[in-house]
Write a protein that binds this DNA or RNA. Structure first.
Lengths: 227, 227
DNA sequence: TTTTCTTTATAAAATCTTTATACAGCCGGG
DNA sequence: CCCGGCTGTATAAAGATTTTATAAAGAAAA
């Protein structure tokens, strides 16, 4: 009936069990992850239709996980957290969470909020595939094809390409890209950026010496052009 | 900056005042309605970008109002209610509400949830583009086009052009331009200015010898004309 | 082990600064 | 009137500096 896939990222096994039973009895397909790392990998390998994310993960800050996911994952993310402080809620929502429920939550309300989130997302059902002639990028499926052949990109390369593609046409500054891809502590490591831009060009440009898609704006940053 | 219009439907005048002050100080435009009927009419005559709806209206059930609105209104509706029962929340969400906050609410959280709701709804908005006939300047994307072709400008050239364009029609003195573009220590280097004005003209004017956009005001400075 | 990321090094390219030269208009004296 | 010096301007081009591209080696992670 429903068949939407929901990924539960939570370290408490009881919560995961409860959610699995609740969700499956409402015809959702449930997959699980118990750590931030596992959650990221699962999201990448089997992109779900919605993510339930606990902020209190053992191996990484939930807010950081959210930011990382939102770099490319566009479907709903609902936060489940014992933290009820306004600061946490505002931060999570501004980082791209669609909703925030404080534990313990009422299952009926959770289900209603899941329905609401999925409903709101239904309109843009198909994967956003960016097509630039010989180059095709499916942000959600995390697949990049050139001349119909899948190109293997490393995590960093993919994140960087996502940032550029999502802001197609705009010039992104070195600082911005470094902050979004590597983190705020790396805004002066322009060299990292150059290295990875060069690698991306070698992989996606027809002629890396005459880049068409990834254009450098000297002294400012880089820009992605689709055409 | 923001300019999204928010309609507040609530019968308590204190709540409306509070919301008006809170929202307006966050650059939203606020319109109000104190009854269900008034709310419906206002929504129809001036469709807002988001509705804050109180469930406890004097003249009609809030759930009924929500259903009526959702018959045609597609933008976000956030419920504000003193009712915290699961039944009410589930009903409201399933009737098409995007979110549900229990009164008394925290203003920071409300604002974050409003941002989240509007964010999810915003369609392909493109940047404000300054259009001067064959010349187009997108300040946000940092892109200058002439006859729809992207012109490559260096950092200094772009900064200088920005100063001129932002003060379109006004004469900017040598001193002013030098101070703004190069810094206060360069106000006597008129030569720099001449060099870069010449380069800009070569790039954006149809005929650099007969400049139309960048006009020199002898003895004073330069002026940018859009037409 | 293999892959990926970080770091270092160096050559090449782009940009900015600086200098040089040319032109046009203006004014006063011859 | 006309000519030379003056001022303000335009443009080219050489040099200096900054920024970028790329390879490759070492470190870390899978």
């Amino acid at each position: 009936m429903n068949n939407a896939t929901i990924l539960v990222i939570d370290d408490e096994v009881q919560i995961r069990k409860l959610l699995q039973i609740t969700l499956e009895s409402n015809d959702y397909k449930v997959i699980q992850a118990s750590t931030a790392k596992e959650g990221m990998i699962t999201t990448a390998s089997h992109p779900p239709d919605l993510i339930l994310l606990d902020l209190g993960l053992p191996d990484d800050s939930g807010h950081h996980v959210l930011q990382q996911l939102r770099a490319w994952y566009t479907k709903p993310i609902i936060i489940l957290s014992v933290q009820s402080s306004e600061e946490d809620i505002v931060k999570a929502l501004d980082n791209g969470a669609n909703d925030y429920l404080v534990k313990p939550f009422r299952t009926g309300e959770l289900l209603a909020r899941i329905r609401s989130a999925i409903r709101g997302n239904l309109s843009e059902e198909n994967d956003p595939v960016i097509d630039c002639g010989s180059l095709q990028i499916d942000l959600l499926a995390r697949i990049v094809k050139k001349n119909n052949e899948i190109i293997k990109l490393t995590t960093t390369e993919y994140t960087l390409l996502c940032m550029l593609v999502k802001n197609e046409g705009k010039v992104l500054t070195h600082h911005y890209l470094l902050r979004e891809v590597w983190g705020p502590g790396y805004i002066n490591q322009s060299q990292y950026l150059r290295v990875f831009i060069a690698q991306l060009r070698k992989k996606i440009e027809d002629d890396a010496n005459r880049p068409v898609h990834i254009v450098t704006e000297s002294g400012v940053g880089y820009r992605f052009t689709a055409t």
